[in-house]
Amino acid sequence: MLEVANIIEAKIEQYGRERQALIPILQGIIADKNFIAKDDMVLIAKELDISAADVYGTASFFSFIEDERKGKYVIRVCKSITCDMKNRRGILASLEKELRIKLGETTHDNLFTLHDVNCIGLCDQGPAMLINDEPYTHLTVEKIPIILREKRNQKN
């Protein structure tokens, strides 16, 4: 894990100490920590000399910028219409069962967080989901435990 201050500094170097660096900074922190803590937002505000409320206003606008602690793997199951037609509800139920959490929750070991998400542009390969940035397509209920096992093993 990197120090948040270092992430911010690196992004500022790339994008300038101006507000247009904000989203890259937020993404940089997300990439490392999966969420933006309150204190980190204050730190960002300080570095860019904008108000903390402004950081929060922008951060909260975007679905991929979380302000609550998330698991190492954030699963986002597509809920758009064609995935819906291809049993995304079944996929979701299977994930809930395997992970023993409900939609929106994080597993006790902080490994997985389960979300749904609007169209991820894989409509021809649905049902589909993202685990962090990686797409998983043509999902079936049978595939879910296998994918999760893979991810759990990656941990070790």
Partner: peptide, 28 residues
């Protein structure tokens, strides 16, 4: 030039917030 208030979230969740929706007495 205080920027204590911001719009937050989007869609039907959009609202006017302080930083992290903290109580007024805790924000700038």
């Amino acid at each position: 030039h205080v920027n204590a208030l911001t719009a937050s979230h989007k869609g039907h969740e959009m609202k006017i917030s302080t930083f992290m929706d903290l109580p007024f007495n805790e924000v700038v």
